[in-house]
């Protein structure tokens, strides 16, 4: 019964998502939804590192940027198709992520946060100053759209925002699915154990360092793929997109939504991509309202919106369990 309800909700959500381009024909709205999808991937990949493994990273935009640059350079200079470069971008970002992870994940808490932030700054400096490769602050333009995709008599053209929306939806759904399976496996168990109590995790046989590096690598790799998608969507990239400010932006999304849940990062990504735009009617007060709202949420819902709801439901369940135990006759 419970499973059927879940499937029904999932089906309804999916149908709703598929119809969004029909409901919002304005380019501007569609752009926001495509960006929401990219941020969903970024938020989920960061949640794997920060939320589930408990390792605070403030350099996530660096992997996003590495993916974007690798993908853009390969297609602009060598004519590679997006369908190839997105994988190479993911692998490249994953490899860098792995190497950085091995170096910095022995650090904890604030030290790790500061070190990853500096890594983010360093990557930004490379984007800005290695002009022969990256064209510096001028960025890379003329990135081709994904080539038409022929597969088994099925033609896929990626031209309009609606096309990107569907492609992004598939991408975000795939990443959600991957993260879902990971966190519900022995790997997810190990990550949660490390987040909760690394010493205790080690004492029961969990190789904490290996799992932290694994989460960092997968998170970085997925962010790299998001970067590739971004590059072939906007068709222009420059260093200003991949700053530490952007890393913090993604971090705020998962804090807002609830980073220890699967749905929280998605909620945070979509909401915080769409909300600032709707606040435009408030004119110059926009950022003030946005800032105040964030502070309020973080103070009163430290587990994030979704995390707080979840813990509220769990609390209800526990309370009823407690009553049942104390008053067995009421069962």
């Amino acid at each position: 019964m419970k499973k059927q309800v879940r499937l029904l909700v999932a089906a309804l959500v999916l149908i709703g998502l598929l119809f969004i381009p029909k409901l919002f024909s304005m380019d501007y709205y569609m752009h926001m939804f495509v960006m929401s999808e990219i941020y969903t991937v970024l938020a989920l990949s960061l949640a794997l590192i920060v939320g589930f493994s408990g390792q605070v990273s403030m350099g996530h935009a660096a992997f996003y940027g590495i993916g974007a640059y690798v993908s853009a350079l390969l297609s602009v200079n060598f004519g590679f198709s997006f369908w190839v470069t997105i994988w190479i971008a993911g692998i490249a970002a994953g490899v860098v992520s792995f190497m950085i992870g091995v170096l910095v994940l022995r650090l904890r808490g604030h030290f790790l946060a500061i070190t990853t932030a500096f890594f983010g700054i360093l990557v930004g400096l490379v984007f800005n100053n290695w002009t022969t490769l990256t064209n510096g602050p001028m960025g890379i333009s003329g990135i081709p759209r994904p080539t038409p995709f022929h597969f088994a008599g099925f033609n896929m053209v990626v031209q309009t925002r609606a096309h990107y929306y569907y492609l992004g939806l598939a991408f975000a759904a795939l990443v959600t699915f991957i993260v879902y399976r990971l966190i519900n496996s022995r790997i997810g168990n190990a990550l949660i154990a490390i987040r909760e109590n690394e010493e205790l995790a080690r004492s029961i046989g969990i190789d904490a360092m290996a799992y932290k590096v694994f989460a960092f690598t997968v998170g970085g790799g997925l962010a790299g793929m998001a970067g590739s998608f971004y590059a072939h969507y906007i068709l222009f990239i420059s260093p200003v997109t991949f700053t530490v400010g952007e890393s913090i932006n993604i971090l705020v999304m998962i804090i807002f939504g609830g980073m220890t849940t699967l749905f929280g990062p998605i909620l945070g990504a979509v909401f915080l991509t769409v909300l600032p735009e709707f606040l435009r009617i408030a004119g110059s007060l926009r950022l003030v309202i946005y800032g105040v709202a964030l502070v309020v949420f973080i103070i009163w819902m430290p587990l994030g919106v979704w995390g707080s709801l979840k813990s509220f439901w769990m609390g209800q369940r526990q309370a009823s369990l407690q009553t049942a135990r104390e008053n067995p006759e009421r069962l």
């Binding site: 168990n189 190990a190 909760e196 205790l200 995790a201 029961i204 046989g205 969990i206």
Partner: peptide, 19 residues
Amino acid sequence: TNIFAEATVKESVAIGFHT
């Protein structure tokens, strides 16, 4: 007292089967 504070009792013990 060293436990996984934010995991349920059931989840905690399940984590123990890691190896």
